[in-house]
């Protein structure tokens, strides 16, 4: 379900932070819910950030100004380096690490849909990262304990993308039997 009500958010088995927006607009729109989501995630509720929602998991972003994120995972959101077409737009091949449960049953590499000009430079040593190649190793997905994020859009990535969302729903269920 889609909600901005604190009670719904507290009662949910897991949370998805979606995103089609610029970073500053998105984090401002979240307002006081940002702190609630952060506390719930720190207390073990599964959280999946998508695109800008994924970028908000990190500490800071420089998209149209300087903005502070949820700081659940160490790293900063910075522009994709010049010398290639920007935005990074379209289907790119992601190498899927075996030990990332978001990708269970998806195989060793799959195409996912990306649309972004900024990316997360992840410095958190406790984070598992899946990469895609865009002339450099670009982080495509992350997991730190119960906190998950994808730079790509699983909801727009056809059958494989739906499988990723299903995997997230499954692990939410396991967490809340």
């Amino acid at each position: 379900m889609l909600s901005n009500q604190p009670r719904d958010i507290e009662n949910a088995a897991g949370l998805i932070l979606p995103g089609v927006a610029a970073f500053g607009f998105a984090i401002t729109a979240l307002g006081s819910l940002a702190e609630l989501i952060k506390q719930l995630a720190l207390n073990g509720k599964p959280l999946l950030g998508i695109c800008v929602g994924y970028q908000m998991l990190f500490e800071k972003s420089t998209e149209y100004g300087r903005h502070t994120g949820l700081a659940l995972i160490k790293g900063n959101v910075i522009p994709i380096p010049e010398g290639r077409t920007i935005p990074h737009m379209g289907w790119n091949l992601v190498k899927l690490p075996k030990d990332m449960d978001l990708f269970t049953g998806c195989g060793s590499e799959r195409y996912f849909y990306f649309a972004h000009s900024f990316y997360a430079e992840i410095t958190d040593t406790n984070a598992k990262i899946a990469y895609t190649d865009y002339g450099f190793a670009l982080p495509a997905a992350v997991r730190k304990e119960n906190i998950y994020g994808t730079q790509f859009h699983p909801e727009k990535s056809g059958r494989t993308g739906l499988k990723v969302l299903k995997n997230f729903a499954e692990l939410c269920k396991r967490q809340n039997p």
């Binding site: 089609v20 927006a21 607009f25 149209y64 000009s117």
Partner: peptide, 9 residues
């Protein structure tokens, strides 16, 4: 539009 939704939109 870009400032609100991001350039990629």
């Amino acid at each position: 539009a870009a400032q609100r939704f991001g350039n990629q939109c």
